[in-house]
Design a protein around this nucleic acid. Sequence first.
DNA 1: GTCCGAATATTTGTCGGACTTAATATTCCC
DNA 2: GGGAATATTAAGTCCGACAAATATTCGGAC
Lengths: 244, 244
Amino acid sequence: MGSARQDGSFGSEEGALRIHQAIARDLGTAILTGKHKPGDLFEGEIEASERLGVSRTAYREAVRILIAKGMLESRPKAGTRVLPRARWNVLDPEMLAWMFAGEPDANFIRDLFELRGVIEPAAAEFAARRRTEEQLAVMDAALAEMARYGLSTPEGRAADQRFHHAILAAAHNDALEALASSVGAAVSWTTTFKHRKKLLPRDPLPDHQAVHRAIAARDTAAARNSMAELLRLALADMDIALSE
Amino acid sequence: MGSARQDGSFGSEEGALRIHQAIARDLGTAILTGKHKPGDLFEGEIEASERLGVSRTAYREAVRILIAKGMLESRPKAGTRVLPRARWNVLDPEMLAWMFAGEPDANFIRDLFELRGVIEPAAAEFAARRRTEEQLAVMDAALAEMARYGLSTPEGRAADQRFHHAILAAAHNDALEALASSVGAAVSWTTTFKHRKKLLPRDPLPDHQAVHRAIAARDTAAARNSMAELLRLALADMDIALSE
DNA sequence: GTCCGAATATTTGTCGGACTTAATATTCCC
DNA sequence: GGGAATATTAAGTCCGACAAATATTCGGAC
């Protein structure tokens, strides 16, 4: 039967990467960190593959991946070049993983957070209206585990992500759920970042419980407001952390 | 100098597709239309490539593309199988193009529209606060062209999309702007759909002009509200069209 | 009989090299 | 000087072989 991995977490892609994946990751991060800027032309496939010590096949498959994510463009004779940033699928889960593996750009973190502020209150409102009992149970379990382990442990942070993901899922909107990885990246980064900076200014649990209560009670307005409040506080913390 | 194509439109990818792109498109649409369901196992690479009359290389590059978009997974001995729908990057521009090339799923259209309802009012508010004069000029020009050609012409529809895109861009948030293609797909589909059904119930221009005025005046609340109103009306039309 | 580890078979992954196609640059003719 | 034929160059495609990884099967120990 299907193993159906459903965690959606980052950074735990077990198993050695295949060569083309490794190269795609390297090229991708090189682009994300500005080592290759939009408009830049890549070296030829033969040169590049030889320099990297891999076959042209593997290198080409890596390039195909980056093209699929909107970062590159390649045509005969014209060569392979980096596309303008506006064409990148910056919300692609793998791309986010690449970003957050290194030191992500502070501006983009802020953008992601702003997106959360737009998405999640609406999602909470939809969830309050359309959630099933099962989905509520998932939130319940995630919240309990979060309370038990705290946000300083990996288990607690995973539970935090599960809670937010459950809300997106309970909104019963595939387009919204597709943003789960983006939201997850933001959630994950926040906590690790704050933890690194040694500032745990506030217990986040009451905010989460308020959201949970509102969704359980099918109170759409309260769900939206409590989630908005949660994010307002989180954003404030984030801004403090970023400016220090 | 860079040619910097910036249209972001669909369906007009000129030039013959490379073989791997064509195969990726075919496999992608086959998955999207349910011909291959999540969990389904693909035939082996040799069989598949022979059946399609292409080299294994080309077929493999196609598969790499689908994997990059979260639709497939492949491991030695285990084979290549379709991932659960929750892992698909349904907001990927290319994937949206595949969807809307055929007869897209009505439920997903509604989801996309709901997403618009969440994203665009917030974007309009941000745009009212942060827009530059240049960006306002772009909206102005788009609106003028929209008024001139009307939504029944391709030029008018392109202008409509440009208007909405300009608002996303004026929000000065990369994460938000990455959703431009999704919004654009919804915008585009709506108008063609309504046009096909022969119901042009209302002149959409006044709504758009109200949004434009609010953004020009830097009135954040009015921008949000007028955009929300625009979408409320559009959604109502959409629901009528979908239920008929 | 059950469980665990090794052999095995199968499928994707990687390789090298040849040839084709397409887009740019050049050259030559008018 | 302009425009069409030509050359050049880089990606695209193909083939055939070998390597690596893993699900399954088999065998032995308990």
